[in-house]
Design a binder for these strands. Structure first.
Length: 600
RNA sequence: GCCUCCGUAGCUCAGUGGAUGAGAGCAGCGGGUUUCUACCCCGUCGGUCGCAGGUUCGAGUCCUGCCGGGGGCGCCA
């Protein structure tokens, strides 16, 4: 599958239901693995039977598999459920097991079992998350700003979602190749280079290095529309560029370098992993297009249509209901962006040997990418298990529910948005924690402001549009970045106040007595499952929901279970639980690309 | 016209085919606590899960058809 919601067939993680016992720190997964052979044994038809274990509100977990199995083999679901219970498979891990309703099995885990699982993840630097069973090569294509054009909110989502996916995939041990497919080639460069010459290189460089990319582009564009003489020069310049004229290439490189320096400033401020080493712009694929086109010719898929060379992948039609072509060479003989995308896929498949290619690109590109992938499959360059997936996303909307614009109706500069976030976060901290020094505040404001913007972007289903709202994203209540960061800071505060070094409590046994401790423990153990379900659909908001629920569970614990005032050994146990919580919080936030300050 | 995505509480959003309790936050109302950081907790108010069929032991979730909204649909990328 290659749709937006597509699921991957390759073993990204191993899966909680997998027979190789991955993600086993999660009691739900352990239970599932334990019951799978029991269910299969009870199925006298020889086929496998899924126990279908789910988290439950009525107990710690509910086993639903007896109902479908009873249907399948024609027996009584309650009796089947009872047989599962009688098998004794749960004796070691459950303190309470009951058959309920039409054949559900409610399972309550024994404290000893949960405590043992906690000890295991506390001793594990990976917090219970197993490395992937197979290391895949994953190419992630994201961010992709245009040279000599401003980065605006439209680039925020691709950059932030892509960065989170890079971090998660890397954490699982995959070989991740970041590709920033910048727009550094094409027709506009004639006018941009001519404008650069008109201004004088040094003056242009000064403006661009200050980040005035918009002004530069617009001035060039204005001249292009107004002045025929300029148009002519621009056209000639494009030809020179495409023919590899050395003087022109020098100017082009200058333009690209100035833009990249600016992009880098934005990336540093945003706190994403992209560097100059990840640049893989359109210009890089330019020399590969001829070869890609020739190979496509060799497949016999290409047909001439109205002077252009195209492929008709099945299933796509135009307004008139006729087959819709993907154009690889225009009537005038020029290669198209489909050709470039084709060269990209071939390069990633053959040179990089990518098992998986992720395209973090806006939803409007869905049909185009689907057509490209289909043609690559038809031509034999995208053969299972190798696959390409479009990780699409919706728009950032303003409070008028239209694509976010500045008051003047222009697109919002990303850098200005980030600066405003930091400023607003600084104001909030100054108000709520006046004792913090201005120096500390500046550092924390950056973490909180950027974290708030990123979290707001990541925490809703990527496929939908979302409404950008300063007040909501910076609130300390609700499903926000600051709320999660604050939970982390609170834990650090406990240790600071007590003068205890956090690693020193990591060997302390954790005893689960209060219900809030139990709930927190269950959540801590579910990190591998949360990560697994997140990557199953490349939906970072699922990991966000997990971290939020973890923070809520911690808050209930914090409220009901005094740590420092408790007597030993409860005090040590709670310190260990708090430390583990902070570690999981920080780890999960890191996977989202968000920092976890020690104080706020 | 065709394709595609979305539609869940006043608002912003979650929701793996599982239980005559569909959740969270915010907003509203009432109460409690004010302790390791600004918090948190309890109660309450709120829903024909866009509509109608279908599949299923079981549907917000899967299928079909409508309604409403966004996006895409030939030589830009």
């Amino acid at each position: 599958m290659t749709s937006d919601r597509g699921r991957v067939n390759v073993p990204l993680f191993g899966g909680v239901d997998g027979a190789d016992c991955r993600g086993m720190s999660d009691p739900i997964a352990t239970l599932s693995a334990l019951l799978a052979p029991v269910f299969t044994g009870l199925a006298d038809d020889g086929a496998e039977a899924d126990p279908t274990v789910r988290p439950s509100d009525r107990a710690d977990a509910q086993v639903n598999g007896a109902l479908p199995l009873a249907k399948r083999i024609g027996s009584n679901p309650r009796e089947l459920a009872q047989a599962v219970v009688d098998s004794g498979a749960l004796a070691d891990i459950a303190s309470d097991v009951e058959v309920a309703g039409p054949g559900f099995i409610n399972v309550t885990f024994s404290p000893a079992f949960l405590e043992a699982q906690l000890a295991e993840i506390a001793a594990d630097a990976r917090l219970g998350v197993p490395p992937a069973s197979e290391e895949l090569t994953v190419v992630i294509d994201y961010s992709a700003p245009n040279v000599a054009k401003e980065m605006h909110v439209g680039h925020l989502r691709s950059t932030v979602i892509g960065d989170a996916l890079v971090r998660m995939m890397s954490f699982l041990g995959h070989h991740v190749i970041r590709e920033n497919h910048i727009g550094d080639w094409g027709r506009p460069f004639g006018m941009l280079i001519e404008h650069l010459l008109d201004l004088g290189e040094d003056i242009a460089a000064e403006g661009l290095s200050q980040g005035d990319l918009d002004g530069f582009y617009k001035a060039a564009n204005a001249k292009f529309t107004d002045r025929e003489e300029f148009q002519e020069r621009a056209r000639e310049r494009v030809v020179l560029l495409q023919n590899g004229d050395e003087e022109t290439l020098v100017l082009w490189r200058r333009l690209v370098e100035l833009s990249n320096a600016y992009f880098d400033r934005v990336y540093r401020k945003l706190g994403v992993l992209l560097t100059d080493d990840d640049l893989a712009g359109e210009s890089r694929y330019q020399p590969l297009m001829e070869g890609a086109y020739e190979r496509l010719e060799g497949t016999g898929l290409l047909v001439e249509d109205d002077g252009a060379m195209v492929v008709f992948p099945p299933g796509f039609t135009n307004r008139e209901g006729d087959p819709l072509p993907l154009i690889f060479r225009s009537r005038t003989g020029a290669f198209m962006y489909a050709t470039s995308d084709l060269a990209c896929v071939i390069d990633r498949a053959e040179r990089l040997d990518a098992d998986l290619m992720l395209y973090v690109v806006g939803s409007p590109q869905a049909q185009h990418l689907q057509m490209v992938y289909d043609v690559c499959k038809m031509a034999g360059w995208l053969v299972e298990p190798r696959q390409a997936i479009h990780v699409g996303f919706g728009n950032v909307l303003g409070d008028d529910r239209k694509i976010m614009r500045s008051r003047a109706g222009k697109s919002v500069k990303l850098i200005e948005l980030l600066d405003e976030a930091i400023e607003r976060a600084g104001d909030a901290i100054a108000e709520k924690n006046p004792e913090m020094s201005p120096g500390d505040r500046a550092v924390v404001a950056e973490m909180v402001g950027i974290g708030a913007v990123k979290y707001a972007d990541l925490s809703t289903d990527r496929i939908k549009d979302y409404v950008f709202d300063w007040d909501r994203m910076l609130a300390f209540e609700g499903n926000t970045g600051p709320y999660l960061q604050y939970a982390h800071a609170r834990i650090c505060s406990i240790f600071r106040r007590a003068g205890i070094d956090r690693p020193s409590v990591r060997d302390s046994p954790i005893a689960l007595a209060e219900p809030q401790e139990r709930a927190l423990a269950m959540r801590l153990l579910a990190l591998p499952t949360a990560l697994d379900t997140t990557l199953d659909s490349y939906s970072p908001h699922k990991l966000c929901t997990y971290v939020y629920e973890l923070a809520v569970d911690f808050s209930a614990f914090y409220e009901n279970c005094p740590v420092l005032k408790a007597d030993e050994p409860t005090r040590s146990s709670r310190l260990a639980l708090a430390d583990l919580t902070a570690r999981v919080l920080a780890q999960a936030l890191d996977l989202l690309g968000i920092e976890a300050p020690e104080q706020m």
